[in-house]
Design a protein around this nucleic acid. Structure first.
Length: 847
RNA sequence: GCCCGGGUGGCGAAACUGGUAGACGCAAGGGACUUAAAAUCCCUAGGCCGCAAGGCCGUACAGGUUCAAGUCCUGUCCCGGGCACCA
């Protein structure tokens, strides 16, 4: 062994050892329990960021731990390679997205290898490979024929200057990011996946998914959003014709209090009424301005305008005005709602603003009236009042009675409503998987036949920000109809990149299969036993993957219903972000390039760029390309080595916490690894084992017991602490003996998943064996955990006053009397009311 | 706005099922070694009062339940994630 810890040499040698033996190549082996451990694959944005390092280190700790536990572990890696940033980079650098992406993949792959992750590189895949995305297209054509993929119009952000569709991310304060033009909503034809057909199944299965965090299941449950209510109609007359305005409500019990109806600007009634009402037309236009994001819509000032039309209350026959309101969304439910200002906060505000009548029809905890201002009690369930024949009924009774009456009139029925909407997958962008459809003047939308797949994306185009360059490429667009043979146009929309990432986990089982999307090997490895990724994916990616897994099962390609048995959602790595205002745009400055002045409490007083320009602090948030606040882990690896980077990310905080990055505290992790090395050096040179200090052995086994418990609940930071505690205990043992030999072997095995290179080297150099990865996981010795005496904490009336030590065999009486003896100073002549004893822990004398 | 999390020393955090709050570290201060520095080792350390013994306060804030609350309940504030075209 070298006298000093040289991570570069240690790591290079260990990695060569693993590479030579193909140590991480996983093969199907029915004789061993399989364990499929997967971290979410990265977008190849250029270089790894700390979030990646954290994610993959967590995955690698689990992978190596389960290997040592004797499982047949698969841990693959790939690239989520299509997407918007490649197009932006292409525009900035005049380089085709394909080249930029593949260069990034090559660089990031080297970084992953340098970190020593136990990955099976033989299974590597990239979603921009035609042998991968052809199966997206193949599956799309299957779903299209079944009606699970279909075409309808959808709303997009439209930049009127660049004449292009913008991603939500490209809309800043309602304006296009490049042009600064006010963004408009525009309806265009798009393809959708009918995920709503699986709403019931996706919701129901959540209950059985014991390996998922409650938090994530709850988010998905709310997202799918099952609600039971009543769909009902307000009849109206338009152009001499009888029509019906349908609404959905979960509060049919308040129907007798409905005083208006509100419809979306895109609703057919609004469109019709606007024809000869310029003011209304202007309002409808106003509603169409702005971006499509729900967060923005929800915070709009509530505005409305009467259509001049009225409809008939389905039960009372009263005339009720119909308003256009900017808070009603066409995409949800019927695009219309009934307004019950007495019992709904939003309707209440709207009615007050526009002086619409407010009726109280429910006796709430606030009483029989609803005087201003609004109180939350007004919306609570209660007994119907001023509701004619429904008076006295409670919520459930009123809903039943009203639904029955509506049904008898043919004006409504009970209905289950879902919040979940179908998944729009069309993107008017170049760098993605082409939608395999051919548009024929006579045959319509024709799916591309299997033998013509894949529809290959040309890789040499450079987008210019004004729409999809595929539209300007006749060699791509001009084709013939597969069904009639006449000239036809190829679809140029590409798929949402979430399509690519909704099944990659299954493809890792058989990435080399050129003849089928999936094969029997997928049924060996699936489901993923442990999936690890950022909490920001809690809804969309995970829900889409669950949907795809079900669709693939129905195609006979998979046997499982759910893709991920256990889910670990790591917290985000956050960093401060800063920008310089330049005109209407923001130039984001990397925190490493910002000089910050802080006050004594650490609050930021001022910030400047290195060349002295004033910088605006934008708060703490997720590290992202767009805010240029990523911390490059490469510097860390170069300076301290992979094991320190890995140890630090594990030690710094538990996996599910957010981690606010600071690179000042890495030093301590490096120091610890150096101490391990130095101990190994001293140990190797020490005399032969002799003696057995009981106390140190007890300490080590006790720490190990806790570490194994913490591993079970994936709290790895305290496992790292445990390694430090064991080293502290080892260093307290004078010389070398049986306890230190055992303790060191425990320490190295505990460290093997976290700092595999160092553990590998010392395990061999100190003669413990050939390969620490093949060693058995250590278990505490019950004999070492036993203690003759137990220390009890003693409290008097809940205040901690000291402790007593009693023999393990002591009975309750003698414990009480020794506690009382020790506490006579505090108890004195007060009457002892009771004595609470928590076995093995605590005594509370209540006076 | 809606849905989901989180808030404990100067900092990252720990605390088992409600049972000694601050383990293990970082940064800091003091000391040893050294011509010096680095490295290493030892000591101190939640706050306030006190020479000390010791006492009081303390887990975002305000209440509540309990012999006992960081942990359970109610309300409030602040921070983070998601909101369907960033990935």
């Amino acid at each position: 062994m070298q006298p000093n810890y040289q991570p570069r040499d240690v790591e290079r040698a260990a990695q060569a050892f693993w590479a030579e033996r193909e140590a991480f190549h996983a093969a199907e082996d029915p004789g061993k329990p399989k364990f499929y451990c997967l971290s979410m694959f990265p977008y190849p944005s250029g270089k790894l960021h700390m979030g990646h390092v954290r994610n993959y280190t967590i995955g690698d700790v689990l992978t190596r731990y389960y290997r040592m536990r004797g499982m047949n572990v698969l841990q693959p890696m790939g690239w989520d390679a299509f997407g918007l940033p490649a197009e932006n980079a292409a525009m900035a650098n005049k380089v085709p997205p394909a080249k930029w992406t593949r260069d990034n993949i090559a660089y990031m792959k080297r970084q992953l290898q340098a970190l020593g992750f136990a990955l099976d590189w033989q299974r590597e895949l990239a979603t921009c490979d035609r042998e991968y995305y052809r199966w997206n297209q193949w599956l799309f054509t299957r779903l299209f024929r079944k009606g699970l993929a279909y075409k309808k119009t959808g709303v997009v952000n439209w930049d009127p200057v660049d004449q292009t569709v913008l991603a939500n991310e490209q809309v800043i304060d309602g304006r296009g990011w490049r042009t600064g033009a006010l963004v408009e909503k525009r309806e265009i034809p798009m393809y959708f996946f009918r995920i709503t057909a699986y709403a019931e199944a996706l919701l129901g299965a959540l209950e059985k998914m014991a390996g998922w965090p409650e938090q994530v299941k709850l988010m998905q449950k709310n997202w799918i959003g099952r609600s039971e209510g009543v769909r009902l109609a307000f009849p109206y007359e338009l152009g001499g014709e009888q029509r019906r305005l349908w609404v959905f409500t979960t509060r049919a019990d308040t129907l007798m209090g409905a005083t208006f109806c509100a419809i979306a600007a895109e609703h057919p009634i609004a469109v019709h009424a606007a024809k000869d009402n310029p003011a209304l037309a202007a309002f409808v236009e106003e509603c169409k301005r702005g971006a499509v994001m729900e967060a923005d819509l929800a915070q709009l000032e509530k505005k409305g305008m009467p259509t001049g039309l009225s409809c008939t209350h389905p039960l009372t026959g009263e005339k009720i005005p119909v308003w256009v309101a900017n808070y009603v969304l066409m995409g949800y439910g019927e695009g219309a709602v009934m307004g019950v200002p007495g019992h709904d906060e939003r309707d209440y505000g709207f009615a007050q603003q526009y002086r619409l009548p407010i009726k109280c029809v429910i006796r709430t905890p606030a009483g029989d009236e609803v005087p201003a201002p609004w109180r939350p009690e007004y919306a609570e369930y209660g007994t119907c009042i001023r509701s004619g024949k429904y008076d006295g009924l409670d919520y459930a009774g009123a809903v039943d009675a009203i639904a029955a009456d509506l049904e008898a009139k043919g004006l409504g029925e009970k209905q289950v409503q879902w919040r979940l909407r179908d998944w729009g997958i069309s993107r008017q962008r170049y760098w993605g998987c082409p939608v395999p459809i051919i548009h024929c003047a006579s045959c319509g939308d024709v799916p591309v036949p299997d033998e013509q797949l894949p529809v290959v994306l040309p890789e040499d185009l450079v987008p210019d920000g004004t729409g999809n360059p595929l539209n300007k490429l006749p060699a791509f667009t001009d084709t013939t109809c597969p069904s009639c043979g006449k000239p036809a146009k190829r679809e140029t929309d590409t798929m949402d990149t979430f399509v690519d990432s909704s099944w990659y986990f299954a493809r890792f089982a058989c990435p080399d299969n050129g003849a089928a999307m999936l094969d029997a090997r997928a049924n060996y490895w699936m489901p993923v036993d442990q999936y690890i990724g950022g909490i920001e994916h809690a809804i969309l990616h995970l829900l889409y993957s669950r949907f795809f897994t079900r669709a693939l099962k129905e195609e006979g390609l998979l046997e499982v219903d759910e893709p991920f048995t256990n889910l670990l959602t790591q917290g985000m790595v956050l960093a401060e972000s800063y920008y310089v205002e330049s005109g209407s745009r923001r130039e984001w400055i990397n925190p490493a390039d910002v000089e910050v002045t802080r006050d004594a409490k650490g609050k930021i007083l001022s910030a400047k760029t290195r060349d002295g320009r004033a910088v605006v602090f934008d708060g703490i948030g997720t590290m992202s390309k767009s805010k240029n606040n990523g911390v490059d882990p490469q510097a860390l690896i170069d300076k301290y080595g992979a094991d320190t980077a890995r140890f630090y990310t594990i030690f710094a905080s538990p996996p599910t916490n957010t981690l606010e990055w600071s690179d000042e505290s890495v030093e301590g992790s490096f120091r610890f690894l150096r101490r391990v090395w130095a101990y190994g050096l001293k140990y190797g040179a020490g005399p032969a084992p002799a003696g057995e200090p009981k106390a140190a052995r007890h300490e080590i086994h006790n720490v190990l017991r806790q570490a194994n418990y913490d591993l079970g609940k994936h709290q790895f930071n305290t496992v790292a602490s445990a390694a430090m505690k064991i080293l502290n205990a080892l260093e307290s043992i004078p010389g070398r003996n049986a306890a230190s030999e055992e303790g060191l072997s425990i320490l190295l095995r505990l460290l093997a998943p976290i700092t595999p290179h160092l553990a590998h080297h010392l395990w061999r150099a100190l003669g413990f064996g050939e390969d620490v990865m093949r060693a058995a996981w250590p278990e505490p010795d019950p004999a070492a955990l036993e203690q003759e005496e137990i220390q009890y904490v003693v409290q008097v009336s809940g205040k901690t006053r000291g402790s007593v030590t009693v023999a393990r065999s002591a009975d309750q009486k003698s414990i009480e009397s020794s506690a009382l003896a020790a506490m006579h100073k505090y108890v004195a002549d007060q009457r002892v009311k009771r004595i609470v004893i928590v076995p093995g822990r605590l005594i509370n004398i209540v006076v």
